[in-house]
Write a protein that binds this DNA or RNA. Sequence first.
DNA 1: CAAACATATGAACAGTTGTTCAACTGTTAC
DNA 2: GTAACAGTTGAACAACTGTTCATATGTTTG
Lengths: 121, 121
Amino acid sequence: MRPNGGIGGRVTPEFVDRRHAEDARKAIHAPAVLRGLSQTFKMLGDESRLKICLALSRHELCVGDLAGLVGLSESAVSHQLRIMKAMRLVTYRKEGKMTFYMLDDEHIEDLIRLGAKHVAE
Amino acid sequence: MRPNGGIGGRVTPEFVDRRHAEDARKAIHAPAVLRGLSQTFKMLGDESRLKICLALSRHELCVGDLAGLVGLSESAVSHQLRIMKAMRLVTYRKEGKMTFYMLDDEHIEDLIRLGAKHVAE
DNA sequence: CAAACATATGAACAGTTGTTCAACTGTTAC
DNA sequence: GTAACAGTTGAACAACTGTTCATATGTTTG
């Protein structure tokens, strides 16, 4: 269960502080939830994707305008949008030769707003 | 300002939807805030770091116990803790040969809790 | 039909990331 | 002192990530 049988590192097989460790164990979510959580944060952990989310927070936008706003090529934006779509962060609507993207989840905006509070320290 | 002068891609120099683009521009934070935001999310975007944050949400813990809880070597945990310390996510307290780490910011827990809501869909 | 446009996509590439391994520092106990 | 322990650190490496470039798809206009 505990890796590192190497030269340095801990040898003791049990926890130093059993009570705290038990509490901590309970605080760690199930693997599936954990994966989803970290993936959601990872999506917002990229500056380009974060900008895309912010740009879409007001209205839907086409890929070209999105590219202009975030300062990326349309190709790069399109690649990111595909990932974000797969992660249920955005949806799209087709109209002629254009594709309009919009946020798929209102929670995302709350998440960014709360994150901003942390940054403001 | 808009990259991609290549073969494919948009040629139009202006925004298709000027109103929406203006609104979107306002919604995108200043570069410094943006960087801080994405870095904060990136910290939580790694499953190991996320587990460490969750484990520390109840009590302080020493490196060895932390390693046991998240299923990593102490070396790996120590490396992560160094990064998290630099990002002001955790602080530490030394006691003899042990080092006890704790969360440095109560906002982080709120952020994770809100993220969990998104995952629950 | 062809040309112009908006977007999508695949391969390739550079840069980053997280872990491991080995060695090292500092502390406690004998 | 020395041995055991707890933690830190640097180098190395594989895996992943985001962008670019070229090309492809589908739509509208003449």
